[in-house]
Design a protein around this nucleic acid. Structure first.
Length: 392
DNA sequence: GCAAATGTCGCCGTTTGA
DNA sequence: CGGATCAAACGGCGACAT
């Protein structure tokens, strides 16, 4: 039997974090607003009831833009841009710190609203989802409008939706008409609407693959679609080459993943200045222990035990080193995690200064104890916590 | 000088056990 | 018993994503 094509929607909230902030501070509508930087500067409330907002020009130190309003984007400000660079481009932009608590709240609201219309949903992080509309009786555009309206009613926020036979095309499509977009894509639209786009628009082609494709003279999806499969295979290996080829032709059979288990839990932090392992040993040791305690608390709060403990370092030159260690048995104990992480640390070179330290817990299993409340989840460390040492 | 935090996946080399 | 072989687990790490 010939199955009808699926109807897969990709829904992407428009400038999500920034839009949530505008719900709270409507006086900022129409302005260049950026979200990011350190978490320490809430807007101050003035005696007359108005608010005093920080400006990007006053920011000092490390940090990146997490997101920004469309007005800020028009000034050349984009996600992951360094704060100081952004401040040069748009010194008068309003700066707000991230408030994940609020974003998670609105995330739950919009997802619940969609689920009432179409329950088959794949979570893709805080601000986007895939939705399978295939089994619903209504017409596609009607459904899309209904979903957009439900999201608006639940949150006051707009989103952009694309619907196509698969996740790949819908993901590309939701970006084609933003904000507040509604895009339908059929296979017949591929030559005109997909092929002219840069290969980087394919979800799964990142900066590295993009650069290597450029080397081969391939910058658009059309050029990728026309590329010799044998040449692709030489440069990318069989598996990735086949996937690239299929993607360029809009072919993607991946099902929606409607339930998934957490695979790892991690905490990491970038220091205010690069730290030297010997000179700053005391500071680093305290940060390291704190990270371990936070991972332990996260595990306990969420009801997990971990059997693998890993660390991540970012050196001053931005290179990354990771090490991990599998324990004899699962744990959520901060001291055990601290010891394991310390063992990992002994295996990495520590000559260069560090800019980031992270601790990860993986190979998770459910703890028999129920998830802990936040207050009771703080672990106590014994007094003789191992200290950081140079490799011997 | 500047470039976050958190998480997933794939690939590869090594180790281990059969 | 030595060698070949295979699978699974492990560890490292790159790439990619939001």
């Amino acid at each position: 039997m010939n199955m009808p094509p699926r109807r897969i929607a990709h829904l992407d909230m428009d400038a999500f974090y920034a839009s949530v902030e505008l719900l709270r501070y409507p006086e900022l509508r129409g302005l260049a607003v950026v979200i990011g930087g350190r978490r320490d500067q809430q807007p101050a409330k003035l005696p007359d009831g108005s608010r005093r907002f920080s400006l990007l020009r006053d920011y000092v130190g490390r940090g990146v833009i997490t997101t920004s309003t469309y007005e800020a984007r028009a000034l050349g400000i984009f996600s992951a841009m360094g704060m100081m660079k952004a401040a040069r481009l748009a010194p008068d932009a309003i700066l707000l710190p991230v408030d994940f608590e609020a974003y998670r709240h609105y995330s739950r609201l919009f997802k619940a609203a969609v689920a009432r219309i179409a329950p088959k949903i794949e979570d893709r992080g805080i601000d986007e989802i895939y939705i399978d509309l295939s089994d619903l009786p209504d017409e596609t555009v009607i459904l899309a409008r209904r979903i957009k309206q439900a999201v608006m009613e639940a949150t006051g926020l707009t989103c952009s939706i694309a619907i196509s036979p698969n996740k790949l095309l819908s993901k590309i499509g939701s970006d084609l008409d933003k904000p507040d977009g509604l895009t339908l894509l059929a296979p017949a639209d591929i030559p005109l609407r997909i092929w002219p786009l840069p290969v980087r628009k394919i979800n799964g082609v990142g900066p590295k693959a993009d650069a290597r494709l450029a080397t081969l003279g391939i910058t658009t999806i059309a050029e990728l679609a026309a590329a010799d499969p044998a040449v692709l295979q030489e440069h990318f290996g069989r598996s990735y080459a086949e996937w690239l080829h299929a993607a360029s032709h809009g072919i993607d059979d991946r099902p929606l993943v409607t339930d998934s288990e957490t695979k790892s839990i991690s905490r990491e932090t970038t220091f205010e200045r690069d730290l030297h392992v010997r000179r700053d040993r005391a500071i680093l040791s305290e940060i390291f222990t704190t990270l371990c305690m936070r991972v332990a608390a996260d595990l306990q709060r969420k009801g997990y035990l971990a059997r693998t403990i890993g660390i991540k370092l970012r050196y001053e030159d931005f290179r990354v080193a990771t090490r991990d260690l599998t324990l004899p048995g699962p744990t959520a104990d901060p001291a055990t995690i601290r010891r394991a992480a310390g063992d990992c640390l002994r295996r990495v070179p520590l000559e260069r200064k560090l800019r980031l330290l992270g601790v990860r817990a993986g190979t998770l299993s459910a703890s028999s104890a129920p998830p802990m409340s936040v207050e009771s989840a703080q672990g106590e460390l014994p007094l003789d916590v191992p200290t950081m040492t140079s490799p011997s």
